[in-house]
Nucleic acid binder design. Sequence first.
DNA 1: ACCTGAACACCGTTCAAGT
DNA 2: ACCTGAACACCGTTCAAGT
Lengths: 197, 197
Amino acid sequence: MATRGRNLDAVTMRELAEALGVGTMTLYGYFRSKDELIDATLDRAADEVKLPPPEGPWKAQLRSLVGEVYRVLRKYPVGVQVRTRRPILSTGVLRTTNAAMGIMVEAGLGKREAARAWRVLFIYTFGFVAFTPEPVTDEMTRDWGAQLASLDVGELPWLVDALPEAIEAMTGSEQFYNGLDLILDGVERQLGTSKKR
Amino acid sequence: MATRGRNLDAVTMRELAEALGVGTMTLYGYFRSKDELIDATLDRAADEVKLPPPEGPWKAQLRSLVGEVYRVLRKYPVGVQVRTRRPILSTGVLRTTNAAMGIMVEAGLGKREAARAWRVLFIYTFGFVAFTPEPVTDEMTRDWGAQLASLDVGELPWLVDALPEAIEAMTGSEQFYNGLDLILDGVERQLGTSKKR
DNA sequence: ACCTGAACACCGTTCAAGT
DNA sequence: ACCTGAACACCGTTCAAGT
């Protein structure tokens, strides 16, 4: 098996119990299942998302809100994998969706457009954490280099020509805001076509 | 444990071997590990992505390419979870990245901007598959409804006001192209600011 | 050369019992 | 009431052996 990494299996009931100095089954006195334990953790995490004050340009508010979600999700990456299996429908988590909807509707976007835009932002944020390895270890760099070296690059001229740029774009976790701004530009354009006020 | 769903654990070496009518360990004669077996499957899948002919507007070409990636990934959703653990660096898969870079650089985008835009498109496509349950079963609908009904919605006015729109935006897998077009608008704006020709 | 059952080191969780 | 060891039904994979 590959490394457990940031996957759900990175947390095991046995290890957690040992770390707490109790028997494994003691955990089941407080949570009915591992899923329930993880849910409780994520609800705590959601409270760490600071909602922006409702003032200033909508774009700055939304950027700040999404940035907060990103920051907190990086701290609790287990939330990403849980979300791949089911939506997380707790008040703590939905507070964020609610705030985003408020910002966009107040800015003049229709409800449907706002809901769709939020979906894109949510997918980007969770997806960024899901698909950006962090930290990148020396072993990873070595593995990937070896794999790339063994490729027939003759068929990949555009990629070869922009290899440094491609590697930078795919691995840098500091690049979250680049993509976010690109998407916010797209949302702004939606605003132009569905203007309500 | 929750359902295995479309996760990597949905495929077990024992079950696969049984389906093939061989002993479990026979598989290890052909692949060194489960990871290697999955990689071989994904490389086959990547060949199903039809690259668009290099003619017509760049936006239509890129839209068609990303749509193809989406279509194929829906067929092999196991690729999503594999990608959360490591990049997939095979010629088959990188053919797609190469084609996307070609379309964008030919359109006039700088290499760096093209690489960053591709990252957003990649994250959106993989993230969409990762975070959109498909199919939605009756049991899921019942569970989510029950969870939503038990919430204190007093704190979530914007969300409550747009609940049908939110549910539609979060569950409809046919909505992939809505978000894609929003992102392509953002890419177009990049083109305006970094125009090369 | 090709195949494979038994066994190992793990999981989450049930059960039946301890205090 | 609170806690928990043993056991069950699973994994991927190693090992040692079959043909």
